[in-house]
C-alpha cells in the first residue's frame, strides 16, 4: 500500500484570526460569523484526520528576511517552533514534521525539475499556524504531522499559477510513490482578496473571489493560466497569495472533487476570508 492524497483544504491565514483565538475573542460579535464558518471544517477534520498535512503557505518576513528568498522551500525537519513575529510566539503547539516523507517528496519533485530549497531549521509564522488553528481547533498537540512548504509571494516575480499547478501534480506523483499507506492532505493557504499597502489598501473583491472559488473547483486547469496582473488588479497586491491554492489543487486527482465545505466572509481585519474543503473521490 502506498501513500495517497485524500483531500485538500484551502483557507486564508489572516494573523488577526490567530490573535482573536489566542486572546479569547472568538465569541465577539466581530469574529463570531467567521469562526462559525469553520465549525463544519473542525467536525470534518475530526472524522478525516490524516497522517500528514502538506501545508503550502508563505512566510511573512519571519523566517526569511531579504537575505535569502527561496521560491519554493520544503521543510524536512523533525519539528518547527511557532515564530515570534514581534509580539511573542503564538501559544500553539510545536509543529511536528515528517522528515521521511518530506525528503522523499523533495527527491521526487526535484527530479521532476522543480528546484526546491531544502530547509532543516525554520520557525513557522501565522501563515502556517492560523490554518491549523482554524481547522484543528485549540489543541494541546497538533493531531498529525505537518510538512511546511513555503512559497515566495512577497518579492516579485512570484511563481506563476501554471507553475504552481504543475508543481502540485509533481507532489501528487511523489506522494503516490511513497511506500507506506499514509493518508496525506494538502492545504493551500493565503488570500483571498486583500491589499495591505498604499492608497488602495483595503481592497476587497467579493465577486472575483467567488468566481475564483467556482473555477478552482470546476476548472483548475484553465484557472492556472490566470496572469499575475489579474490577481493584483482584481484581488489586490497581497491577493497574489492565491497562486498557492493552485499547488494544492494540482495535487488532487484529475476527476471532479467532492465539495465537503465552502465558506466566504468579509472582513477579517483587512482581508476577505475564503475556505474550501475538496475530497478526492475514492
Amino acid at each position: 500500500m502506498m501513500a495517497s492524497i485524500t483531500a485538500s483544504v484551502y483557507t486564508s491565514h489572516v494573523p488577526a484570526i490567530g490573535a482573536a483565538l489566542d486572546l479569547g475573542k472568538s465569541g465577539d460579535d466581530y469574529w463570531k460569523p467567521l469562526f462559525a464558518g469553520y465549525e463544519p471544517s473542525k467536525a470534518w477534520f475530526k472524522d478525516n484526520t490524516p497522517d500528514v498535512i502538506f501545508l503550502v503557505y508563505n512566510d511573512h518576513a519571519t523566517a526569511f528576511s531579504l537575505d535569502m528568498i527561496p521560491t519554493f522551500a520544503i521543510g524536512c525537519a523533525a519539528e518547527y517552533q511557532p515564530a515570534d513575529e514581534g509580539w511573542g510566539p503564538r501559544p500553539v503547539p510545536v509543529v511536528k514534521g515528517h522528515p521521511q516523507l518530506a525528503a522523499h517528496i523533495a527527491h521526487s519533485v526535484i527530479q521532476d525539475d522543480f528546484d526546491l530549497t531544502i530547509v532543516n531549521r525554520m520557525d513557522v509564522d501565522h501563515g502556517l499556524t492560523v490554518p491549523l488553528s482554524l481547522v484543528c481547533g485549540q489543541v494541546q498537540q497538533w493531531p498529525c504531522a505537518v510538512i511546511p512548504f513555503a512559497v515566495n509571494v512577497v518579492q516579485y516575480p512570484v511563481p506563476s499559477g501554471r507553475r504552481c499547478f504543475n508543481l502540485g501534480r509533481a507532489i501528487r506523483k511523489a506522494v503516490a510513490l511513497y511506500d507506506e499507506p499514509l493518508k496525506v492532505q494538502i492545504w493551500g493557504t493565503g488570500g483571498m482578496s486583500h491589499q495591505l499597502q498604499g492608497p488602495r489598501a483595503g481592497l476587497i473583491n467579493r465577486e472575483w473571489d467567488n468566481r475564483f472559488l467556482d473555477r478552482l473547483i470546476a476548472e483548475p486547469e484553465a484557472l492556472a493560466d490566470l496572469p499575475h496582473l489579474e490577481y493584483v488588479q482584481e484581488a489586490g497586491s497581497e491577493g497574489i497569495e492565491l497562486v498557492m491554492w493552485l499547488i494544492a489543487r494540482g495535487a488532487m486527482s484529475d476527476r471532479p472533487p467532492r465539495v465537503a465545505h465552502r465558506f466566504y466572509h468579509v472582513p477579517a481585519s483587512n482581508t476577505a476570508v475564503g475556505h474550501l474543503i475538496l475530497e478526492n473521490s475514492q
Binding site: 518576513a61 528576511s65 531579504l66 537575505d67 512577497v154 518579492q155 516579485y156 516575480p157 491589499q195 499597502q197 498604499g198 492608497p199 488602495r200 489598501a201 493584483v232 488588479q233 489586490g236 497586491s237
Partner: peptide, 21 residues
C-alpha cells in the same frame, strides 16, 4: 500601472534592502 499600488519587485527590493533589514 496599477493605481495606488507599488509592486515589491527585485528592483524595489534592491533599493529597499537596508530599510527592510
Amino acid at each position: 500601472s496599477i493605481p495606488g499600488t507599488t509592486i515589491f519587485d527585485a528592483e524595489q527590493a534592491r533599493r529597499g534592502y537596508h530599510l527592510n533589514q
